[in-house]
Write a protein that binds this DNA or RNA. Sequence first.
DNA 1: ATTTCTATAATTGGCGGACCATTAAGGAAT
DNA 2: ATTCCTTAATGGTCCGCCAATTATAGAAAT
Lengths: 244, 244
Amino acid sequence: MASSSSPKPSFAPIKTRRAFEVICEQIREQLAAGTLKAGDKLPAERELAVEFQVSRSALREALRSLEVAGIIRNVKGAKGGAFVQTAEPDRIVQAMQDYVHLGDISLGELTEARLALQDIIVRLACARATETDLAELEAIAERTKRETSVEARYACAVEYYAVLARATKNRIFGIFVDSLSAILHEFVRGPDYETLQQSLIESRFKLVRHLRAKDEEAAVAEMRKHLERVHRHVRKNSKAAAKG
Amino acid sequence: MASSSSPKPSFAPIKTRRAFEVICEQIREQLAAGTLKAGDKLPAERELAVEFQVSRSALREALRSLEVAGIIRNVKGAKGGAFVQTAEPDRIVQAMQDYVHLGDISLGELTEARLALQDIIVRLACARATETDLAELEAIAERTKRETSVEARYACAVEYYAVLARATKNRIFGIFVDSLSAILHEFVRGPDYETLQQSLIESRFKLVRHLRAKDEEAAVAEMRKHLERVHRHVRKNSKAAAKG
DNA sequence: ATTTCTATAATTGGCGGACCATTAAGGAAT
DNA sequence: ATTCCTTAATGGTCCGCCAATTATAGAAAT
């Protein structure tokens, strides 16, 4: 930003890249290029260390990084090794959770984003949900009724949202929803949550009926009403537990 | 699933958790609890190793994991150490990129999600963008005109989207947009991209005019038209380079 | 011949120590 | 006051070792 008139020194790129970074980079490249695919097994740590001409420690840090990033899985024992993982959105969720914990995101932003997101999802699901999807949603709602613990019912709710997102046939939305669910979970507390849960179940059935009837606007309205109740509760209870 | 009648064995929690995982967990806990805040400095590696009663290697793997997760930053030298980072969405973007590279997500899903997302963003920005935001958008569009290289103009486009997302006053959308931008960047290739870029600039000015006039529907329509042109190009060029 | 047990080898997980490179701070020389 | 050198702190890397775990092959029992 400063001194855009100066002739751009651009000395900078000294940047002593660390060994493990280079290794990660190379492996990621092979991944993007398709040389490495899910299920492939990387050579043993000691072999890789020789190949990359680094110590085993450095290589281990690289593997650890990739494991934490969800790219590989390190399995111990004979026939063990580093296996390229199939894609799982868990790490994205984790990253988002970390981001929120580092304190930049407010509850209001989370709920607003969720509301907007579910709008899209409901509309898409309305257009694309198969009968299988709808039946699954109903089954989950039914199961929620039978569950006894608060936690179990909450798990059902998360699953309901996940299945709904899957009904859009677009996995991106599933990732977003999972992330927001995981983060908002931390706020779901309070004594009156149990009674709220009960009254939310009916709303889930209503939503399925609207979806089956392909009544997009009614479905969206139902979802909004539903979420606004949940968020009102969340906001109230987080205010009580607020640190600020 | 099997034998739900049996009295819940619950032997399970053997699970030899690895040393570095336990360490990461504890530090993450302190982070969520607020005991650790951005800017704080963790003790030196050697001290921490003693405190956690693990070897320095194991501790280093934990720190490395946290660094890769974007939670801390390791700085070398005297007065160096592990510093808790301020929140940055880079890691989320990285995680999403990894997820896509692992092969689960199609281009169609990406573009559809982007389209839907920009719909929301434009609507929110229309309601909330300040004159400062709008001026910044115009400045970026102006700058795009003056840039000569394809890459530089693309960088301007990314920035334009980022500022637009910021105008919603909700950082969640910024993260989503950044992620999709980074991923879609890989597909932006082809000889006719340069001419496309030129014609896109006008669209950006139009969008700002609609936003300033608070004409939500016109703004959304402009953005859709804009993105659909881009995506048509991307799809055409990725088809040529498809591996399947 | 088949099953079961056992020993072995391969492999990652973890540990401890040593040395190097980089950085900041303070003191010495100018 | 400025510059240069020394020193200490710290992360980065490397090496060697042992422990834990698991597939596999071979031995033993049926």
